[in-house]
Nucleic acid binder design. Structure first.
Length: 499
RNA sequence: GGCGCGUUGGUGUAAUUGGUUAACACGCCGCCCUCUCAAGGCGGAGAGUACGGGUUCGAUCCCCGUACGCGCUACCA
């Protein structure tokens, strides 16, 4: 059983330099699952110290993404930039204790393209590292600009136990004297995270693996500040199909959580998919084959030990309209739409119909039975929530206010000129039916087909297209009843012109 | 360049921490069902576990090396 310890405090700390992307969403999810399982607190902190690249709009995007995913936080959102004074104070404290020093080296403009080679050559001992305190103070008092650097010890190594990657150690020699405070007094990432995590009492830092090597520096800062080092758990990265980085620039909207909401994903399905990217339940050999997990199940089964070490590929093909994202994600969404209790799907269907201008309040009162039946019919073939309006339109409008798919018309209507006369004929065969049911409609159609010496299949497919404009859909007699006798008759009469 | 992390079918993951014909799901192919498309049922192709060495009676699993990928290495986060 999971350890219940309500002293757990975890956080999701995105930098608002872009919308909430799938990698960030998964990090948030894992933190949330851990907090919910242990009864601890989940805190949201926006790391906006890079003011150049942060914006309110991005912050909103992240908040909306979290809300859509249903990842509610107990504290926050806090903004890291609000704590800059505290970070500066911490830097001063480190300076005073001798754990950091002033570096008066003039600022160098870095060239992004050659930065790595440049730095590789530069690894020499900083000449200001051992500047006498008095001289350092004097130069600072004199107004000379400086950065504050952490003074990494020369002999020894840092070590910590990562909950995912295991024991980690790194030689001090391989850690540079990182900058804590810029010459303009602006605190930098490694200082800020540590200060905030200490201040917020974070017990478990669950974040992307891209921070694994940074962690050694942070451990050093924790120790110099005399704070308790939290548990670290680094998550494998989510990669693009070419195993490269999944980036906003290269991969566009597919990496944005917003896209999944807009394109008709059920948040629970997306969460389920995300949970299985880099994690698998540890318990019960029989249960290992399970793929569909409710939120409650995920909360119950989640373990840091179940997190994978290797990166996962987010598999999609660019430019494929039908399979616009990972096919397993799409499948999972479909699976949820199809198998979830109808009541849980209904609110999403309603919202979709409302935004498509197809909603009527009577669907929740006098026509409720009919409406729910139609949604039930549609969900069997709906890959996304969008299909409730796209495929559903002919059910919800009167007349012919829906699209006729040219391919469907060609395949089912114009292929046989006789339909021009057969369809209105069929309409008249439907007219006298006093009870319009699956059985009576089918009997009428089959009798009509036989009387006219045509195959029932011809009429069935033609009727489907005549009533919905589509070549695919539910069984015709389900369909005909759902559309209703009157509308079915009208449409059969009128669409003869399309033959 | 340095340091670190990783590597099971196309993708996501399993494999009682050395003993399986290497399993499941997505995707793909075929058959059945059928009024279409799905769904569903049944079956199939697809990895000998990156590669090369060890250790062992026996390695996906332990050790070493190589390759490849990724991350960090900024007065970015």
């Amino acid at each position: 059983m999971p350890e219940v310890r309500n002293d757990v405090r975890v956080r999701f700390a995105p930098s608002p330099t872009g919308y909430l992307h799938v990698g960030g969403a998964r990090t948030a999810l894992f933190n949330w699952l851990y907090a919910r399982q242990t009864g601890g607190k989940f805190i949201l902190r926006i790391e906006d110290t890079d003011t150049q690249r942060s914006s309110d709009e991005m912050v909103r995007g992240i908040l909306e993404g979290m809300e859509w995913l249903g990842l509610d936080y107990d504290e926050g959102p806090f903004f890291q930039s609000d704590n800059a004074d505290k970070h500066r104070a911490a830097a001063q404290q480190l300076l005073a204790s001798g754990a950091a020093y002033r570096d008066f080296t003039p600022k160098q403009e870095r060239n992004d393209a050659t930065i790595k080679q440049d730095i590789a050559k530069e690894r020499v001992v900083n000449p200001f590292r051992d500047l006498p305190v008095l001289e350092s103070d004097a130069r600072a008092a004199n107004g000379e600009p400086f950065v504050i650097r952490f003074k990494v010890p020369t002999e020894g190594k840092t070590q910590f136990e990562d909950a995912v990657f295991g024991a980690q150690e790194r030689d001090y020699h391989d850690i540079e004297d990182l900058v804590l405070l810029r010459s303009d007094g602006h605190p930098l990432y490694n200082l800020s995270v540590v200060c905030d995590d200490i201040a917020m009492g974070i017990t478990h830092v669950i974040r992307g693996q891209d921070h694994l090597s940074n962690t050694h520096k942070q451990v050093l800062i924790y120790q110099a500040l005399g704070a308790k080092v939290p548990v670290f758990a680094h998550l494998p990265l989510i990669l693009a199909p070419n195993k490269g980085k999944l980036s906003k620039r290269k991969h566009g909207e597919i990496v944005s959580v917003t896209t999944y909401r807009e394109r008709g994903f059920l948040p629970d399905a997306f969460v389920n998919f995300l949970a299985l990217l880099g994690w698998a339940p540890q318990e019960g050999a029989a249960a290992k084959d399970q793929e569909i997990f409710s939120r409650d199940e995920l909360i119950k089964l989640f373990r840091l030990e179940g997190i994978h070490k290797s990166n996962a590929v987010f598999n999609f093909t660019e430019g494929d309209a039908r399979n616009w994202t990972d096919q397993k994600a799409l499948w999972m969404n479909f699976e949820y739409l199809k198998t979830w209790p109808l009541e849980k799907v209904l609110p999403y269907a309603k919202a979709e119909l409302q935004s498509a201008g197809l909603w009527k309040d009577e669907y929740e009162s006098e026509r409720r039975g009919w409406y729910e039946h139609v949604i039930g019919l549609l969900r069997e073939r709906a890959r996304t929530i969008k299909d409730f309006s796209a495929h559903g339109r002919p059910y919800f409008v009167d007349g012919l206010d829906f699209e006729f798919d040219p391919e469907a018309v060609k395949k089912n209507l114009s292929k046989d000129p006789a339909l021009k006369e057969l369809l209105p004929g069929l309409a008249e065969a439907f007219v006298p039916l006093t009870e319009f049911t699956h059985e009576s409609a089918e009997a009428a159609l089959r009798a009509f087909a036989e009387a006219r010496g045509v195959k029932a299949g011809l009429l069935i497919n033609a009727t489907r297209t005549a009533l919905t404009g589509q070549a695919v859909g539910p069984s015709l007699f389900e369909l005909v009843v759902a559309i209703g006798q009157q509308r079915a008759v009208e449409r059969l009469r009128h669409t003869a012109s399309l033959v």
